[in-house]
């Protein structure tokens, strides 16, 4: 029996509909052998519940609205409330100013991907940090 696959939830918090980044990364992760659960638009409650039920290793948030701090904070608060701190690798991608990266990481985001990201860098980061 093959060992477990890396499972990733791709979620779009909020209502902004820029979808290219999420799709491009989803395809790249699938092509790298991961199981990609496409959550689409989800509020943070739906996102965390999906992450739980699907028992994913990684939560990827695609945010292009400029509201990244608000959504990431809500999400991490809820994860903490459920006693699941550090159980998921949280990645954030989208139109995020570089000067916000360190603050997001301090909050608990494992890595942030801005405009011009190469998909192989995301794949590598996940594979290096989640050993299956």
């Amino acid at each position: 029996m093959a060992d477990g696959k890396i499972r990733v939830l791709m979620s779009k918090p909020g209502i902004d509909g820029h979808w290219r980044g999420g799709i491009v990364i989803s395809r790249a992760l699938r092509d790298a052998g991961m199981e990609l659960i496409f959550g689409g638009f989800q509020n943070v409650e739906q996102c965390v519940e999906s992450a739980i039920q699907e028992d994913v290793d990684v939560i990827g948030l695609s945010i292009h609205s400029g509201a990244h701090f608000a959504y990431v904070k809500r999400l991490l608060d809820l994860i903490e409330e459920k006693g699941l701190t550090d159980q998921f690798m949280l990645l954030v991608g989208g139109v995020i100013p570089a000067r916000d990266f360190s603050e997001l990481k301090k909050m608990g985001v494992a890595n942030v991907y801005g405009p011009g990201t190469m998909t192989k860098d995301v794949v590598e980061f996940i594979k290096e940090n989640i050993k299956k």
Partner: peptide
């Protein structure tokens, strides 16, 4: 690739909570 795209859940968001 051995990977998969699981895109059904997105259709059930309304009841998911």
């Amino acid at each position: 690739s051995g990977g998969a795209f699981l895109g059904d859940r997105v259709r059930m968001t309304e009841v998911s909570l």
